[in-house]
């Protein structure tokens, strides 16, 4: 057990190294950082709640979009670079099990996205804080109540985004373990992310009564198979306090994310076991 953990850790360490030594990661990081920072110049001058919301929407939108791109493309790339370059052959001839290999890939990619989310959220926090100070000063002069944002909420949101990207990585790895090519994995992985974004529509539809059992079965299966990725988007509520978020609801979202993550990794490991390298 301890050896197994260690091997997983070594695989993820090298996976992490590989990813951060690539230009793709740096490129996306710089691009998204530029997006967060540019929200300062694009702001609407209404000195109110709307302004912080604009900055937050813009920044978290960028984190969400580029994070998903990174999670899909980079994970597929990290997996297929080992398969196509036959380095997986060298590694798997050692006392390393297939699930250890896949889990190593997972944690390596997840760590990279952790860095990504953390860097962007820190920038976002600085931008929000700077604007908040200006708004407070302006509000005092005008004798209004200033708008503020919540640091704790920002931290919670970072964790939620990271978990959400972890679910995406797990899905992409499950697809990779089955797929023959990088391109197929990226295409199907992207579709899965889009499906996850739209999952709530199927969930809504499922709650309405229907005559067709086949349609109901389809909805039931798709709402179980595909995680609802929208449920992690609590930026307004957590950071700007637009509505109260109950602790229980937050925990439920986390647990559901973890459950999908574990389920997809298990599925991926089972498929990868059968794969001929």
């Amino acid at each position: 057990m301890k050896d197994s953990l260690r091997r997983t850790l070594w695989i993820s360490r090298v996976t992490f190294l590989e990813a951060v030594r690539q230009r793709f990661f740096a490129f996306l990081l710089v691009l998204s950082a530029a997006m967060v920072l540019s929200s300062v110049s694009l702001r609407v001058f209404d000195f109110g709640h709307g302004e912080l919301k604009f900055i937050a929407d813009f920044g978290f939108g960028g984190m969400f979009f580029f994070g998903s791109v990174l999670a899909v493309v980079m994970t597929a790339q990290l997996f297929f670079s080992e398969i196509d370059n036959k380095t997986a052959l060298t590694l798997l001839a050692k006392p390393l099990s297939r699930p250890e290999f896949l889990l190593g890939k997972f944690f390596g990619a997840w760590a990279v996205l952790g860095v990504f989310v953390l860097v962007l959220a820190s920038l976002q926090g600085v931008v929000l804080w700077a604007r908040e100070q200006e708004l407070i000063a302006a509000a005092e002069q005008a004798g209004r109540i200033p708008t503020t944002f919540s640091i704790v909420g920002l931290c919670q949101l970072v964790l939620l985004q990271w978990l959400r990207l972890g679910v995406v990585i797990a899905i992409v790895l499950a697809i990779s373990s089955l797929a023959r090519t990088f391109l197929f994995t990226v295409v199907v992985g992207s579709l899965a992310v889009v499906a996850g974004q739209l999952q709530w529509i199927a969930q809504d539809a499922f709650l309405r009564p229907t005559d067709s059992p086949a349609y109901a079965a389809f909805l039931w299966i798709s709402t179980r198979l595909i995680p609802n990725l929208q449920q992690f988007n609590l930026a307004d509520a957590l950071v700007l306090g637009s509505s109260a978020v109950e602790e229980g609801a937050l925990i439920a979202v986390c647990l559901s994310g973890l459950a999908y993550l574990v389920a997809y990794l298990t599925l991926g490991s089972l498929i990868f076991r059968q794969r001929e390298i």
Partner: peptide, 24 residues
């Protein structure tokens, strides 16, 4: 095992690779 036409992780140094393999 030395596989056919080996390609190893290009971004590692030779020593890092051998160390990694030893650990695994």
């Amino acid at each position: 095992f030395l596989p056919e036409a080996p390609y190893f992780h290009k971004f590692l140094t030779g020593r890092e690779l051998v160390r990694y393999c030893a650990q695994l």
